[in-house]
Design a protein around this nucleic acid. Structure first.
Lengths: 192, 192
DNA sequence: ATCTTTGGCTAATCCTCGTAGCTTTCTGGC
DNA sequence: GCCAGAAAGCTACGAGGATTAGCCAAAGAT
């Protein structure tokens, strides 16, 4: 039937993302991926070790893409502008691919080399944007966590339809950004 | 074998929570619940319509419990104190039951009567805490969303081990609270 | 040309959800 | 007390997905 379908690990991940984007994260299965690849399910095991591995690779891919998005958004800006750019870029990614939100929430092990590398890149982008505020090393970490938590929480709730009231979501996100950046500036001033 | 095991819908939900707490949210299955109930899996269908229904009921139960926790935490406080109390109570719940974090992230339909009711209760608790700030109705909604997003994001990342660096998580959460409350006060001042 | 590696396949196993239909226990009216 | 009927259990079964084992053909290297 399929004399060499030209598959490889990256192609499997790409198909997995297609399934997730079109049918939702819960719908991901090896059967679905195989169908799109035009291949029988067991054939996938020549490229990945199983469904769990696909999930892990998808998580890493998404994390890497988000990192790339926020990194380029912050280019050429600094201080509050840079932070606002990072937050917008993160939200923009999740709005474009709402079903990938769960990949950003997934528990990942830092023992995993590739995971650690992707995470590190994301953190570095944030650190660069925060440099202008003059925080200590520890405080930079705390602030980065706060920003990540806030934007992750907002986007994952938004992607999941978790906000029920009719008020404008853009305005809500603007409020969140304003609160965070205000808080940031105040902390920076206090820290001397 | 089991002449009436005294099961009912609430008991099934309780057992489901036990599975989630002890084995993780992904480990939830009708088979596991049935085992704990001392009953064959199909018997559960006398009480719930399937696994999806169990998940929905679990989500509602968790949401209700969190609402109760934050509501009682805010009692007798107002303004910044009330907000800090809400945030701490939310985080406290998730720290006590880390595997339930995913239930708070789950996409829920507001068309669902019970879901809407639980959500409404949570929002009301936040609105009450914010009253002292004197926001407009719309601004109250935006601020509430920002607070929920932030605390949800922090706790879900924390529960999933999503923070890799060694810095103290309590300090990070304190930073987040400080940023939010600072932002809140500033917004309130601006709004006149 | 042949030999090896690679990437497909079929077949089979296991597990879980969910349905059907039977049986036992409890309960309430008489 | 007795007995109908509802409620709550059971076994048996079928569908679908993950994974393993073992086979075979296609590509590519020597």
């Amino acid at each position: 039937m399929s004399p060499r379908a030209g598959l490889n690990q990256d192609a499997v991940v790409a198909l997995a993302l297609a399934v997730i984007d079109e049918e939702g994260a819960d719908a991901l299965s090896l059967a679905k991926i195989a169908e799109r690849a035009g291949v029988a399910p067991p054939s996938l095991y020549k490229h990945v070790t199983g469904l769990a591995a696909v999930r892990r690779l998808v998580d890493i891919r998404v994390l890497t893409e988000v990192t790339e998005a926020i990194r380029s958004a912050a280019l050429g800006h600094s201080g509050a502008d840079a932070i606002a750019g990072l937050l917008d870029a993160y939200r923009g990614y999740v709005r474009r691919y709402p079903n990938r939100a769960s990949a950003l929430a997934a528990p990942l092990s830092f023992a995993d080399e590739d995971v650690a590398k992707a995470m590190h890149g994301t953190a570095e982008a944030a650190f660069a944007g925060l440099r202008a505020f003059g925080f200590s090393r520890d405080q930079t970490v705390h602030v980065t966590r706060a920003l990540r938590a806030a934007v992750h929480g907002f986007t994952s709730l938004e992607a999941g339809g978790g906000f029920g009231l009719p008020q404008d979501l853009d305005a809500s996100f603007a409020t969140l950004k304003a609160m965070l950046i205000q808080g940031l500036s105040t902390l920076a001033r206090e820290e001397t």
